[in-house]
Design a protein around this nucleic acid. Structure first.
Length: 429
RNA sequence: UCCUCGGUAGCUCAGUGGUAGAGCGGCCGGCUGUUAACCGGCAGGUCGCAGGUUCGAAUCCUGCCCGAGGAGCCA
């Protein structure tokens, strides 16, 4: 019977078949220990001379790292085995004898591993991260589905920028210029007027020449948008979403977090509501800490890190100055200098994981804003229509998947939080 | 785009003016409970590239290429 290693505990004492690859092996002459991985886990197979046919014993000795094999044996509990269970091997079928595998069990540099990302994802740590990523996406989608949000897919080819044109990837669309989407948000605004509560999940593209541990040129976002909602409603959904995602990963991916040696104490303490500070307060805190910042400036990485160090859970910074936020942000009725925008910053120096806010729903105000930002009004006619035909207050946000995964996993760089990262200088493999 | 650091065996690195090195990986041999096993042996090099200084350059100088870290930029 073909079983998966993650379920092996259910088959104690039974004969099973594992289909996988040789992870590593050790030998003591008359006994070989072969570590088999199948994508769900790793189990040690024990091959003893005399207990298997001679050709099987010899094969176990000749197996190279990453050779694909089908192994039959009896599952038994053994405290000496990594993982607690081992396989008393009865037979090994060789599917392919691997060539000398470049990623050895010793240390390698980042450049070497990134060049071999297609193989690197087989290794334990990368495997754990990508499993957690899948859990994060599943948890977020299940949360939103349960809350009555409808999945509405946004286009990837778009006719215009939603910000300036400097950070867009331009492509030739049958002789016309088109751009890869930076965000599904504008389309979600249309969709929420059709369905009430919606979200999209997909890749976003930014042609920024950013070279930091928090940037990719292609990254994924989940973007909810809610009709008849204000900034507070959006923040409340955002914090419950993040709390739910963290809880789910703790519950279902404990093994992976252990593998990553993630200190889960911080994650376990996360409870709604998250702290909320205004941009004004944030600037005051940073100035008190002696940081170089003036009111009206956006936060740089050191500012975000410093702020994050003041909190042990994710927290909101809200009501940023209007001029450093996007054109569609609604003006704060209490202060025309401010916008009804917010960011959620992760603790432990991971920075912004959510950006959102209440959108400007009034036609004239939005037109003014488009003009002020030097954007071509003609490209936004469809978007302005949303303010002509039954406009309502609405709000939403975008959760960056890679930054969220990097934070939950406690890894240093977002490039490991996505299977095949696209960065300034990385387009291969 | 800017700043800093780096490029030596397949990999990770040591060697800072005088014979090219180690550990891991590979190959060969040994070992009946290994835990990134261990022990013995063997093979493996355009010292990033080009020029210069010097009796002599992996080592010093200049330029270029590539990589990493950070900054700026960043719905």
């Amino acid at each position: 019977m073909w079983v998966r290693i993650e379920d092996i505990g259910e088959y104690e004492g039974k004969e099973v078949e594992i289909r996988g690859w040789l992870f590593n092996s050790r030998s003591s002459g008359k006994i070989h220990f072969i570590l088999i991985r199948d994508g769900t886990g790793i189990i040690q197979g024990v091959v003893v001379k005399g207990e298997v046919p001679d050709d099987v014993f010899e094969l176990a000795d000749e197996l190279t790292q990453e050779s694909s094999i089908i192994v039959r044996g009896i599952v038994r509990k053994d405290p000496r085995a990594p993982g607690g269970y081992e396989l008393g091997v009865k037979d090994i079928k060789l599917v392919h004898l691997s060539e000398s595998y470049p990623i050895t069990p010793k240390s390698h540099g980042v450049a070497f591993l990134m060049e071999r990302r297609h193989l690197w994802i087989r290794s334990r740590k990368q495997n754990a991260i990508l499993r957690i990523r899948a859990e994060v996406v599943n948890a977020a989608r299940e949360f939103l589905n349960k809350e009555g949000f409808l999945l509405v897919d946004a286009p990837i080819f778009t006719p215009s920028a939603c910000e300036g044109t400097t950070t867009l990837f331009e492509v030739d669309y049958f002789g016309r210029p088109a751009y890869l989407s930076q965000s599904g948000q504008l389309y979600m605004e249309a969709a929420c007027m059709a369905f009430g509560k919606v979200y999209c999940l997909g890749p976003c593209f930014r042609a920024e020449k950013s070279k930091t541990r928090r940037h990719l040129t292609e990254f994924w976002q989940i973007e909810p948008e809610i009709a008849y909602a204000d900034i507070n409603d959006a923040m409340e959904v955002a914090e419950r979403l993040v709390a739910c995602v963290v809880e789910r990963v703790l519950e279902r991916r404990k093994r992976e977090l252990e593998m990553l040696e993630r200190n889960t104490e911080v994650l376990e303490k996360i409870k709604v509501p998250f702290p909320r500070i205004s941009y004004d307060e944030a600037v005051k805190i940073l100035k008190e800490k002696g940081m170089d910042i003036e009111w009206g400036e956006d936060f740089g990485a050191p500012h975000e890190t410093e702020l994050a160090n003041s909190f042990s859970s994710p927290f909101f910074v809200h009501r940023y100055p209007k001029k450093i936020k996007a054109f569609y942000m609604k003006e704060d009725p209490d202060n025309p200098e401010l916008s009804l925008s917010f960011d959620m910053l992760a603790p432990e120096g991971y920075g912004e994981i959510i950006g959102g806010g209440q959108r400007e729903e009034r036609l004239e105000k939005l037109k003014e804003s488009i003009k002020r930002h030097n954007l071509p009004e003609s490209a936004f006619e469809w978007y302005l229509d949303l303010r002509r035909y039954g406009t309502v207050p609405h709000a939403g946000f975008g959760l960056g998947i890679e930054r969220t995964v990097a934070w939950i996993c406690g890894i240093h760089h977002v490039r490991e939080a996505i299977p095949f990262p696209r960065m300034l200088d990385t387009l291969y493999p």
